[in-house]
Computed example of a mutant assay.
Amino acid sequence: MSTRETDEQQRIRFQVELEFVQCFANPNYLHFLAQRGYFKDPAFINYIKYLQYWKEPAYAKYLKYPMCLHFLDLLQYEHFRKEVVNGQCARFIDDQQILHWQHYTRKRVRLLQSQAEKHMMTVQNEPTPQKSV
């Protein structure tokens, strides 16, 4: 019997790993894993190393929460894995993430508003075509 995955098995593994790696964007989930000792398990740590293939553009394009890649990097360090077991650490990371998103959202809104204003100025300044009689 072949140990090669079928197309269906590959599709399911892709979906499961995509969902799992994106969970790393949630500091509370990292805290949950740390509290239950997953980050002390060598097999789990090897699995986290394996998941780094999600950083490749061919895979990263499927991520809805790209912040998970930053946490995937941090999880490679024992010091981070030990610190995230602390609830205060997880809350701090969560707060910083919220502040980052708020800043990004405000910056994006300002950028879109300025682009819309420039477009309106361009449209208003364009000469109107004259009808020939």
Rank of each mutant, 00 (worst) to 15 (best):
V16T: 12
K64S: 10
K107H: 13
N28Q: 13
G87K: 15
A43L: 13
P57I: 06
C23T: 12
P57F: 03
R108V: 09
Q35A: 05
V21A: 03
C23V: 07
F80Q: 01
Q9G: 07
Q10R: 15
Q124W: 02
N26V: 03
R4F: 02
C89D: 00
H70L: 13
V21Y: 08
L18Q: 03
L30W: 05
H70A: 06
L51D: 09
A60E: 09
T122M: 13
Q15V: 11
F32N: 12
E83G: 03
F44E: 09
T6N: 00
E8K: 02
Y50S: 11
I45D: 05
R81C: 08
G37W: 03
S132F: 02
D73I: 05
L112K: 13
E78L: 07
Q130V: 15
H103M: 07
Q88H: 08
D94C: 11
G87Q: 11
L99W: 08
F39G: 01
K107G: 05
R81W: 00
W54L: 08
N125W: 02
P127W: 00
I93V: 11
Q97P: 00
K49C: 11
A116C: 09
D95G: 00
R36F: 04
H31L: 06
Q35T: 12
Q97E: 07
H31P: 03
K118E: 14
N46L: 07
S2Y: 06
L75H: 07
L112Y: 08
R36Q: 13
Q130H: 07
Q15K: 14
L111D: 15
N86W: 02
L111P: 01
R81Y: 00
L18F: 01
T3Q: 10
L51P: 05
P27W: 01
C68L: 04
L111W: 14
Q102C: 00
Y77E: 15
F24T: 07
Q102H: 06
D7I: 09
M67H: 04
Y62M: 04
R13D: 12
H119R: 15
F32S: 10
F32G: 04
G87C: 02
V133R: 15
R36K: 13
H31I: 02
I98G: 01
